[in-house]
Write a protein that binds this DNA or RNA. Structure first.
Lengths: 341, 341
DNA sequence: ATGAAAGCGCTAACAC
DNA sequence: GTGTTAGCGCTTTCAT
């Protein structure tokens, strides 16, 4: 037998379909007499009625589904995403939404078509920036989304566009904080290790770090800025070069993300070095990941869970309240003192 | 302006709505003349037409959406889930499905109503057992799902019901393999640490472990079976008790999951002990998590990614091919030699 | 208070 | 080949 629908209930209760719909959706309503309401509910219960959400969505023109666009690549990234995800889920459950997962197939950017197709089923989209899109990519994507009138929020991104809902951290302030911390610890030669020079995050961190060291009368020479391009070998090469000469080697490294930090740990292990004796390290990433490493990294913990929680809430506000203004939120971060710096 | 629909295209192309639908959905069809097809496609392109998937779903009575039912709790669990998730996504992308995420609100079990409501939007459900449901809970849930005629697959579970699609590992064989490995390494007193004695996984592991040690003429005394109940303090108490007397202390511990392993590492650190000198440890869990720990754990790696990949495929087969028989798949596992046993 | 009827946007069966 | 039509299951006016 096929699933019961409103019509089935209506027939058994000898009322109209409309009456059933109303009785089932509004707890206390004057539109249907109490006797009928109870009768209808009883029958619905007996029939094990479950509303067809697709039909409801078509009729209401909204699905209460949010899409999360995020690539699943390497385990570390997955770990980061999982944290954001659990934050998102908390908000969604509270506000009665569910989450649809999209993993973009192609490379960064993707075609307009792809982006727009992702409107499929959802009332809005959440983008999590995993540090793979350049400023240009981002700008392009934003433009496409706005052209298609899709509501969205970006997580872990800083966007200059004021019209864009986004939540992230103040990377520039973080870079500066790193500089202060390290200089206070008597470090004079500080290096910056990131994945790619094109990323907004890279630029902001670097800007802050530079501001910080300069404030202390030091400088950040170009040769102490390294980009791994997400490649472990490249990371090893950079570190070998940096640490070759005792005299010029940086005494501390600011490591822009978790993957790099892992490469760095791998390097230290491979070369038989020790942290922080041979070089101090300060990281930036997810707390639950960092807490697994030994020695415990001194690191900025990104508020991954909170970013998800807040970002999802902002998107829902945008969807439900047409007058809602987009906002850019920068969450506070904190430095967790470990044993590496 | 509102989103263009088939009717808009039909009007501009001066054809019927049906013709547009057909022309857009079938690359080469005789139903619509080539000239019209091209004209229609051109107009669709110009209008930036995107099909309304909700309407399509209502009409076709399927959404190509799969639901993943999984709790987001602690970071380690999230990590595990993220791995399964990325496996699932690979299959779904290949087969044109998307994933809907459900995080059950209540405690284990949940009401029938909840389970059934999860039919919302999806063609089928994927359950990931995170080691929180007892055999009884599972049986009950299965019965409800079958009563509601919901297609589903269970991941990381062993179910006795032959009618249930499931993918997992042979925990009993794993327990036995652990015994052999440890005994060969000259261990005579082996302990088993798991989270709860009620879990199917616990029972299978234990059964295999026992079979293994007995085969070597040893035994597995009740006092060397410990259940943490997911509580770090309890874990510490158990370990304190076990390791109190040099004479009777187990020389090796088989640790049933990643969370326990982390507690164990925490314990060792807290007590100033060393692995494997003070006690050998063999774990069971996700590879990418285990690879982060130092010393590197000797552990069985669960095929998390593969479980997701395969489980999703099984569910889609079940949905698309009515004659498909349910199957229980046990994936191979392998022991990864680390430094702790 | 109640029911009839018009959609929501698309697919598919059927007639021409 | 092409268009007409009848749903898919629900919400929501709008009469009554």
């Amino acid at each position: 037998m096929t699933a019961p629908k409103l019509a089935d209930i209506a027939k058994r209760a000898e009322v109209s379909i409309a009456a059933v719909s109303i009785a089932l959706n509004n707890r206390d309503t004057k539109r249907v007499s109490e006797a009928k309401r109870n009768e209808i509910r009883k029958i619905a219960e007996e029939l094990n009625y479950v509303p067809n959400e697709v039909a409801k969505a078509l009729s209401e023109r909204r699905t209460r589904l949010l899409g999360l666009v995020v690539p699943f690549r390497d385990p570390i990234l997955n770990h980061f995403i999982a944290q954001v995800l659990s934050g998102i889920q908390v908000t969604l459950m509270r506000r009665g939404y569910s989450l649809l997962l999209y993993s973009p197939t192609g490379k960064s950017g993707g075609s307009t078509r792809d982006q727009v197709l992702e409107r499929r089923f959802t009332d809005g989209l959440i983008f999590v920036d995993t540090g793979s899109s350049s400023t240009r990519d981002l700008a392009e994507r934003i433009q496409q989304l706005e052209a298609a009138k899709i509501k969205f929020v970006m997580i872990n991104t800083y966007s200059h566009r004021a019209s864009v809902n986004s939540v992230g951290v103040d990377d520039s302030a973080m870079g500066e904080a790193a500089a202060h911390y390290l200089v206070q610890r008597k470090h004079r030669r500080i290096a910056f290790l990131s994945s790619s020079g094109m990323l907004p995050t890279h630029l902001h961190l670097l800007q802050g770090l530079r501001r910080g060291v300069i404030a202390h009368g030091l400088d950040l020479p170009a040769e102490h800025i390294g980009c791994s391009e997400n490649n472990e070998e490249t990371t090893f090469r950079i570190l070998d070069r940096w640490l070759a000469s005792k005299r010029t080697a940086p005494t501390a490294i600011f490591c822009a993300d978790d993957q790099l930090l892992m490469h760095l740990y791998g390097y230290v292990e491979a070369r038989g070095m020790r942290l922080p004796e041979d070089v101090a390290v300060i990281g930036r990433g997810d707390a639950s990941f960092n807490s697994l490493l030994r020695p415990r990294p001194t690191a900025f913990y990104l508020p991954t869970f909170e970013m998800g929680e807040l970002g999802a809430g902002m998107l829902i506000d945008l969807i439900e309240k047409p007058e809602q203004k987009p906002q850019r939120v920068l969450l506070p971060f904190k430095l967790h003192a470990g044993d590496t710096a």
